[in-house]
């Protein structure tokens, strides 16, 4: 089953075209990593999928054109976590995560018991339930990132898009997040991440490689061909080695 399909989509930031005719198929209930060198258009592609940037041609979410979806309907289906998301206010952690329930709430209604339960689950899943009474601007970068991940989880969307979700996390919390993503996909959620750390990106099921705004390759992370394409897109400055059933990426000297 395909969760997201794009056909020859292009997108601009201002007057500059960033994405040039990308056609890709993102499988449902799997983890897809978008990787590529700096300036490849990874974050822009994620924003286009989230419906946050206009695009040309066809982009379907579960076979439905994204452009035909109502804003609220789209918000229920797709959760988005931006890169270095800046929180300008001094909201309490609990209130901030509750914002993830906005697509499910009416304007005049208070959060329901279900909303409270889902927020508690989201906070527990990233191990920040104990921080729920703290203002967000009084927390460390790593704690803040885990709370923002909880906010995205609280949407309970069928598709979760995360741009650099491992940023600011220490290695144990990075490992926790990888476990969490894998458990989400087992429960049927489609997860798409943009990651600079290729070792972590290779933990995904599927990979999309972008280069200079175009699709360079897409395929399963287990395929040798995928590894060769990843090394090539980084000008063979990295090398992928097998390690205990997984892969590690090492930089190569010139």
């Amino acid at each position: 089953m395909i969760a997201i399909s794009t056909q020859n989509i292009s997108a601009k930031l201002g007057d500059v075209e960033i994405l040039h005719g990308i056609s890709a198929q993102i499988p449902q209930a799997q983890w897809t990593s978008i990787i590529g060198p700096n300036g490849a258009g990874k974050s822009t592609f994620l924003k286009v999928i989230a419906g946050l940037l206009p695009h040309t041609n066809q982009l379907n979410i579960f076979s439905m054109p994204l452009q035909s979806m109502q804003t609220k309907e789209r918000a229920k289906k797709i959760a988005w976590l931006g890169q270095n998301e800046v929180v300008s206010d001094d909201l309490l952690v609990y209130d901030l995560v509750m914002l993830g329930r906005l697509p499910h709430q009416q304007w005049f209604s208070s959060p329901s018991a279900t909303d409270h339960l889902i927020v508690e689950q989201a906070l527990q899943s990233t191990h920040v339930w104990n921080l729920r009474h703290r203002p967000i601007n009084k927390l460390s970068g790593g704690e803040c990132q885990r709370i923002l991940i909880s906010r995205a989880l609280a949407v309970q969307a069928e598709i979760i898009l995360m741009d650099e979700p491992l940023a600011n996390l220490d290695p144990p919390h990075q490992a926790d997040l990888i476990d969490l993503i894998q458990s989400l996909t087992q429960q049927g959620t489609t997860v798409i991440t943009v990651l600079h750390d290729i070792t972590y990106a290779l933990q995904a099921n599927h990979v999309i490689i972008l280069n200079q705004g175009s699709l360079s390759y897409e395929g399963a992370t287990t395929h040798q061909q995928t590894h060769a394409q990843i090394e090539a897109v980084f000008s063979n400055r990295i090398k992928i080695y097998p390690l205990q059933g997984s892969w590690v990426v090492m930089p190569q000297n010139r």
Binding site: G51, L52, I78, W80, G82, V86, S88, L91, L99, L102
Partner: peptide, 16 residues
């Protein structure tokens, strides 16, 4: 409240 998380996040949460 949603705007406090940034414009794009507010948009992603279904805010017009």
């Amino acid at each position: 409240d949603a705007l406090a998380l940034g414009e794009l996040t507010a948009l992603s949460l279904g805010i017009d």
